Computed example of a mutant assay.
Amino acid sequence: MPAVDCHAHAFNLARQGWGSDRGFDISPGELGTAEQFLHLLSLHGFTHGVLINPLGGYGANNTYMLEAIAAAKGRLKGVALLPDGTPEAEIRRMVEGGIVGIRFNLDFPTSPPLHGEAGQRSLARAREVGWMVQVHYHHNDSIVAAIPILRAAGCPVLIDHSGRPDLAMGLDQPGFQALLEFGRSSDAIIKLSGLFRLTQEGAPYHDTDPYIASLIEAFTLDRCIWGSDWPFLRAKHRTDFAPLLDALARMIPDAADREKVLWDNPARIFRLTAD
């Protein structure tokens, strides 16, 4: 069946150098090209992928991602960063080039902001072109102040990396509970990714199971997608593709339900076709 890895990053220094506005550096062991990502997908039976601009490495420059999407002939889409003041011609280029959303990194000072007037301008531009709004944060309480903005955004909303709960704080931590309520009371989408960022034990990530189960209950399977986060930037533990897929199969044991998470939902959200 077709399947989508909804979260990966790609870097090719032969095509694009590092950006001066990058949020963090990429180490040599974290480099991976779009061609290598597509090869990895094929090895694991995946047909499509979504590239995310992480702010690290290239900063807010989306050039290589657009080049990679064009070369992939329909297998890739992208989620970009949109600096305030981006020219309309560049936005048109992004839309035509396969960009389907913009990302806000709530805890990175160099990220285009969600809050304030600049954030409102970005959200307005996203509405105009039909982009989704993807939100990432490192501190799980950062979502609390963002939720009212996201409710009023008028765009599809996607939360990255399972909402980044702090496992040491338990299921009742306020930020995670606010995210669960947001899932129950909105049409927001949750990305079941980043287990290697959440775990205190490492693979096979059993300690993350209660959090993923709570997210599936709150958002429902119709609003869950999955991503590997390849090539595993700034990972705390040894990370590989297969253990992450194994954890997904453990949490969603029914094959039809997994098909919904791996294909039906992302195909709808990211405008992908099986052809």
Rank of each mutant, 00 (worst) to 15 (best):
Y58I: 13
G59A: 07
G59F: 06
G59P: 04
A60M: 05
A60K: 06
N61E: 12
N61V: 14
N61A: 14
N62R: 00
N62S: 07
T63W: 15
T63P: 00
Y64I: 04
M65C: 07
M65Q: 02
M65E: 04
M65Y: 03
L66H: 10
E67I: 02
E67G: 03
A68P: 08
A68F: 10
A68T: 13
A68E: 03
A68L: 03
A68V: 06
A70L: 07
A70C: 09
A71L: 10
A71G: 06
A71S: 12
A72S: 15
K73V: 05
K73C: 12
K73M: 11
K73P: 04
K73I: 00
K73T: 03
G74N: 02
G74H: 09
R75H: 11
R75K: 15
R75Q: 14
L76G: 03
L76K: 08
G78E: 09
G78V: 11
G78R: 13
V79A: 06
A80N: 02
A80I: 01
L81C: 11
L81H: 01
L82P: 05
P83K: 10
P83W: 10
P83D: 09
D84F: 10
D84Y: 12
G85Y: 02
T86N: 04
T86L: 04
T86D: 00
T86K: 02
P87N: 04
P87A: 04
E88F: 12
E88D: 13
E88Y: 03
A89E: 14
A89D: 14
A89P: 03
E90F: 08
E90A: 15
E90W: 12
E90M: 10
I91T: 03
I91S: 09
I91L: 12
R92H: 14
R92W: 08
R92A: 14
R92Q: 14
M94G: 02
M94D: 00
V95K: 15
V95F: 12
V95C: 07
V95I: 07
E96M: 10
E96L: 15
G97E: 00
G97L: 02
G97S: 01
G97D: 00
G98E: 05
G98N: 08
I99D: 07
I99W: 01
V100Q: 15
V100I: 12
G101Q: 02
I102D: 00
I102E: 10
R103Q: 11
R103P: 12
F104H: 15
F104V: 13
N105Q: 13
